[in-house]
Write a protein that binds this DNA or RNA. Sequence first.
DNA 1: ACCGCTTACCCAATCGATTGGGTAAGCTGG
DNA 2: CCAGCTTACCCAATCGATTGGGTAAGCGGT
Lengths: 351, 351
Amino acid sequence: MNDSTAGGRTVTLKDLANELGIHPSTVSRILHSGTEVARGAASVATAKRVRDLAHKLGYSPDPQATSLRTRRTHLLGVIVPRLSDLVLAIMYEGIEEGAAGLGYSTFVMNSRDNPVEQRRKTDTMLARRVDGLIIGDAHLDNVLLQELRTRKVPFVLMNRRVPGHPSATCDDVLGGQLAADHLWSRGHRNVAVIAGEPYASTAVDRTAGFVDQWKSFGGAISQQAVVWSRFDTAGGREAAENILNACNPRPTALFAVNDFAAIGAMGALRSHGLTVGRDMAVVGFNDTSLAAELPIPLSSVRSPMLDIGRTAVQLLKQVLDGERVEPIRLKPTLCVRESSARAISATLLRQ
Amino acid sequence: MNDSTAGGRTVTLKDLANELGIHPSTVSRILHSGTEVARGAASVATAKRVRDLAHKLGYSPDPQATSLRTRRTHLLGVIVPRLSDLVLAIMYEGIEEGAAGLGYSTFVMNSRDNPVEQRRKTDTMLARRVDGLIIGDAHLDNVLLQELRTRKVPFVLMNRRVPGHPSATCDDVLGGQLAADHLWSRGHRNVAVIAGEPYASTAVDRTAGFVDQWKSFGGAISQQAVVWSRFDTAGGREAAENILNACNPRPTALFAVNDFAAIGAMGALRSHGLTVGRDMAVVGFNDTSLAAELPIPLSSVRSPMLDIGRTAVQLLKQVLDGERVEPIRLKPTLCVRESSARAISATLLRQ
DNA sequence: ACCGCTTACCCAATCGATTGGGTAAGCTGG
DNA sequence: CCAGCTTACCCAATCGATTGGGTAAGCGGT
């Protein structure tokens, strides 16, 4: 453990310099740069003496002082709808890992998907002088992003994309297609979609991927079979209720763009006396750790959440380095489980 | 939105001073202190001119410069086992809220409950010169805490307590008692406990609260009916398997110190052909949002997670202000649901 | 002996805000 | 008319690290 503490005495460059009878700038050059500058700034012997002493005294540079001078804080801001959304929490673990690898630290804040909060949190981050932002709660219609671009704030989107901005996301269109392929191949011909929030690209893309693929197979999906909803269990429950009420004949399969909505829907189905996997197939999205653990394990499109977080950091790093970057979409895969594994039964077909 | 950006020109005190033809120190005093110092430093008219200009130009003080001078960063470090644990994620939301209210920003890092990582993350936080730490992953046997105290690093514990250190936690002993009261009152006499990790006070206290209360009723709990386990679904599943194998006669009720472990256990019970709520009562802990949404809703001891987070910040603030603080334990309440609502059935009693 | 080059440093300004210690002008009271 | 006080400021050092621009010593070559 180093000795620079919140409470105790802190070792500074000057301390090291005084101790060794050399100038702080020399110490800085030795410690600062990996041999390129160090050589030329000091003799090998001096460099070693400095490094040894620094290590012995547990010197760690003051990041505030460094930032003040260099105008770079090595701080990244991360804004998510809410960390209590497992999906974002896992992406954040990827971010933390990626950022640590590059020597950055990260702030996270919850915006609750509320535009006022998004702006406020963004402001707080910028007031802290973060070097860049990772935005995990982008709305498709958001003006904030244009503003940030105009002001040349470096940022990347994560999880949700918005055309024209760099982003690290799951290939949600593909994910929707995978779900459609699966349900169609199991013989389903009458399906409904719990579509999520229309302001989120995740919801829109997954739904579009599913619906377009379904139509390309020659299937039909009526207006009332696509229900927009919140992403949480309560939203999924309501959406499923709507579908059960509005769709006649009752669909034989449900695609929810989010595992939590799928779980809520499963609850609603159960309340209606339907058994998931037998009377109704259900497919979720993200393959959160719960999907496999449910009493009736949930089929789900697995999105590489950790990798999305890591990729977002890499991308932001490139932006900070002034490189031009393209959006990246990581491939999802389908995990089939009991909730949708069996082919549609004769009884259901006959309905 | 203020104009100080990661990308653009930033307005400094000196800019304001030049613009108005006064000295930066005067501007600082006006903007810095709420009338006490400001009065005496400048005329009311000047103060207004300064404030108006600051607002117009979107001045926001450079936190790095401020910290360098004042030696306080207004940064708090938060260390948790993992943010993908819903419980900690929600506590963090409380922290974020509380910290924002006091003008602090927070770093979070995941330690994965691994002592090496705990130390490494602590070091990273201190290297960033945080003003204090909120530690959410304390182990009962941890030496790190003693070290931090010796080095006079201000910190408080959250979620898990360790005797002798300030902490904001749930009253876990009481929580365990509530579960015991409930199951006993429903007629159960043969129970088992999925106890969690023995290094966490949450696990130890909840188990002790339950077991002691049970014994005070005259009940008995055998050695093999208390199974230590990981906190996740897989851990709960394994523990339940152990219990089903080792306990004869089979218990009629299960208390898991964590909802996720409870969910895992429910899966195991189902695999054994047992119906939760009828063949076996199950009670979890924390009342995470999923408990109520499960196909068979889970009874759970509700712990005030948001408040614990908020309280942790308040407590740390007091520590930073040099006040003496006592550990705080917030009261849990019991939410009874289908998984344990009905009284023990005659069939089960006869077993 | 002298030019030019390398080696191994030192010097001082700078980033932006804070703060203890001035000081000049103006007013009051005796 | 002047001591003494208040008002409304200014000055300069400081926090710790970085960095462009020195410079003195030493050495090789001619």
